[in-house]
Every structure is written in C-alpha cells, then in structure tokens.
Design a protein around this nucleic acid. Structure first.
Lengths: 201, 201
DNA sequence: ACGATTGTTGCATGCTCTGCAAGCTTTCTC
DNA sequence: GAGAAAGCTTGCAGAGCATGCAACAATCGT
C-alpha cells in the first residue's frame, strides 16, 4: 500500500472523525462543512472530494454488505444447508474480518448515538438498506432456484434486512460483545418471525 | 370547510402536481424550486411554506399511516382475532377511505415511476417507513401484552412494514386494482415469511 | 530524474432553505 | 357590514451546500 493511498484513507478517517465529533458536540445543523474541513486540516473543497454531503461523512460506509465469495457460497446452498443459519452467517460475515476493531467500534458507537439524536440520519441510514436488500434478494432467489423477479425472494430479503437492522440497532458495540452473541440475537429474531407468521400461531 | 382552507389544499396540490410533472419531464436535478412555484402560480418563497424541500413535494404524505381508531382496534385484539389477518386490515385501512381515488391513483403512479427513475427518492421513501414502523411496533406490543421495549414487537413490525413496502412497490395503481387484490398479495407475502422462517421448512 | 497520474486548493457560481417584515386576504365579532 | 384579528403570501437578504474548472502540488512509474 503506497504513500498516496495511505494518505487518502487517513484524510477520509480524519474527516469522518471530525464530523462525528463536531456533530455530537453541537448537532448536525450547527456545524458547517468548513468547520469539519478545518478540524481535519484540509480545505472545504477537499471535503467534497471525499463525501458528497455532510450526511455521507457519517453514514458513508454503511451498511456493510456481504462480499462476493460469501454471497456466492450462500447462493449455492452453503455452508450448512439450513436457510436461516446460512442467512445469519452471510449477514454477519462482515463482523469478523474487521482488522481495526477498536476504532471501528468506537465509530459505530458514535454513529449510533448520533443517529438516535438526529432523526434525519436515522432515516438516511434506514434508506441505505435498500441497495443491500436488492442484492440479498438476488442471492436468495438463486439459492431457491427462483427467477430473479420472483416476489417471495424480495419479501424474504426485505424481512431479513429488517431483522438485521433492528438487531444492529440494539447492539452496543462494546468490547464484550462477541460475534456469537450477535448471531444468537439474530437467531432469536428470525424465530420471532416464524412464530408470528408461520403456520403454528 | 372554509375558503382559506380550500385554497391551501389547492395550492398544495398544485405544487405537488407541478413538481411531479416537471421532475418526470426533466429529472429531479434539472428542475428548480422557482420553476415549480412558477408552474403553480405562487412565489418561490411560498413553496417552502408548504414543503421543506423538493423531495418533500414528492414524498410529502407518504407512507400513509393507519389512523388512531384502526390502531386502537388492532391493539385490543380485533377485528377478527387472527394476527396476520388483522395486520393486513390495519395496513390496508388507508386504501378504502380515499375519496378522490382517481387523482390519488394518478399521483401514485407518477410517484412510482419517478422513484424508479431517481434512486435518491427511492431511498427517501424507504427511509420514511421508519416512523410508521415504530407506531406499528407499539400496537403489536400492546396487542401481545408485551412491554413497549420488547424486541420481538420491533422485529415483527419491521418485517410487516417491509412486506407492505415490497407489496406497494408491485402495485400498479390502475383502475382495475381492488383492495381485495392488495390484501391477497399481502396474505401471500406473509405466508412466504412463515414458510421461510417458520418451524416447517 | 522525468513525465504521467492523481490529489488539493481557491474561485466563481447556482441553488436550497430560513428569518424577517410588509402587505394582502380571509375570518371573526359585534 | 365595518373594523379588528388571524393567517398567508411575497420579496429581500443572507448563510450554507454543492459542483465545475483550472492551476498547483504531491506521488508514482520507469
């Protein structure tokens, strides 16, 4: 990884951190792009080279989407063969390969608090699930051998992402929180769905 | 209904219609608030007395939320006693008491087309479900006798709204489309959920 | 070390959105 | 009905967001 690339990710980080900190301190509306840029020691114009808007600086890389090999494995019926179990595996795949867990968790906590305080951000976060939802629908359809436009894959994907979102909202991103705990919560949530909408009520 | 109030709703309508038409014609980015206002024969400043942004003019009154008496009836276990059936009743309640169905459907079709063309609007629409979701979670918890913060009511509400959203996306808002058809589609979608996550797979 | 590539910055500009105060229209009251 | 009260519309001023462009600076490839 060259110097150039390292500098870029550093600037990106600095801008995100500055934005989060200032927003938490003074509220979204009372912080200008210029102030964020100043805090990160770049020009205001540079801010817009990294993020298209203030909101982007907070939500930029959310939600994390499962990457190609994981999706591929799910689509072809793996890894366990059990639908719900494999869905959980796919949805939590990003939780394991995060190298810098500490700063990651810190930022997640800040984002969470900010989103609870600023409804505009909560809606924005919510809206971003749309893209991922479509991808998940596609792999579910593939796994089931359905045509890509089949309604049930979209419905189930939408519900799965809803569960994921709801569960993430309840996470605290603390040190003690293990991936296994998250999986258990998802399992329980999916079971709730089964009980509410399944044949046995 | 006095003259003043009639004029207000007329202006609101005019602005919405003007916005939708111009956006469809030229795309969201290529229409200014001034143009919309001119088309509706009011000043640009007046536009902002009605809508906080261009996006609001398109999505302003979406999604429609079930009103108090309907929520109340659902919360207390009615009207049929069957959870899924009553959920469907609640979620489709707004479809019946729409007096001016024609212009309503027309606008819905325009919105739908616009949202398919402008991803920004689709995300915004998606994000707006958040508010309704919280209300639905509250009445589900009440119906089940759960404490208001119980996780399963949020999970189930999230899934229910996801199903609703997904189903609305598939509607065509044509004359022939009856409320009964919509209910049937919702029923099928909830059944898909039950099959995917229920005990029998 | 040299040119090519990529990133940063200032400048100009258009548009969004808000607050404010003046003027107009509708409503209320007698 | 006339006059006061309430509510809307409008123009104006101004802060801030966001983008294109061109010059300049830093890195990279060889």
């Amino acid at each position: 990884m060259g110097l150039r690339e390292r500098k870029k990710t550093a600037t990106r980080r600095a801008l995100q951190e500055a934005a989060l900190e200032l927003f938490l301190e003074r509220g979204l509306e009372n912080v200008t792009v210029e102030e964020i840029a100043a805090e990160a020691d770049v020009s205001a114009r540079t801010f817009f080279n990294y993020f298209a808007s203030k909101e982007e600086a907070v939500l930029g890389d959310l939600p994390v989407r499962p990457d190609e090999p994981v999706r591929q494995e799910f689509a072809s019926g793996g890894p366990s063969g059990d639908f719900v179990e494999d869905l959980i595996t796919m949805l939590t795949s990003f939780l394991v390969n995060t190298e810098d867990l500490v700063s990651h968790r810190r930022r997640m906590r800040m984002r969470k608090e900010l989103m609870e305080r600023e409804p505009q951000l909560a809606r924005g976060f919510f809206g971003r699930f749309h893209t991922v939802e479509l991808e998940v629908a596609a792999v579910i359809a593939e796994r089931w051998g359905d045509p890509p436009e089949e309604n049930r894959s979209f419905v189930v994907a939408a519900a799965a992402m809803a569960v994921m979102r709801q569960t993430m909202k309840r996470l605290h991103f603390e040190e003690g929180e293990q991936v296994a705990d998250v999986r258990a919560k998802l399992r329980e949530a999916f079971q709730n769905l089964g009980e509410a909408f399944g044949p046995v009520r």
